[in-house]
Amino acid sequence: MADDRVRGYASGLLELARAEGVADRVSDELYRIARALESSADLRLALSDPRLPPERKHGIVADLLGSRVLPLTLNLVNLLVAAERSRDLPAIADRLAALSAAERERAVAEVRTARELDEETTARLAEALSRATGKQVEIKAVIDPSLLGGVVARVGDTVIDGSLRHRLEGLRQALQRR
């Protein structure tokens, strides 16, 4: 039931974005918003608090996103918040990205980096990931400063961790085992 609802919302939002001709960008922005929502418990609680009036929630969304996303993306997020589906937003964004990629016969590759990647590096990374996984991938970039440096890519269930945080964690485990 919940899966049907997520798929329905994802399809609907994708159709709206496609109708506006900004499907890729909306998909990217929703994906990043979803990751931000996942990493902030306070934001999740605020957007899903039933005691908070919708206008206040819309204000929070506007303050956070503002002019950094397309107006359509902002409106779609407000639509989900007004429908009290903010908890489902990460799943809907993931499904929307997967549907968008699948239409182009591609898989979604979530790429986390501590700093934003330029287009040339993103393209090289997509090509390398496609070669390594055997699938044509479509990169969804997420900025995650906790990685310290390096890259973490996830394609389906496959995670390739090349972050400094991962290496330091390995160092910590080695020190503890010694």
Binding site: T113, A114, R115, L117, T121, R124, L125, A128, L129, R131, A132, G134, G149, G150, V151, I160, G162, L164
Partner: peptide, 17 residues
Amino acid sequence: QQALVDRYIEELEGMPR
């Protein structure tokens, strides 16, 4: 960071398919 990403890409390219 760019050097780390480049190295990551090189390692990906060196991975067996």
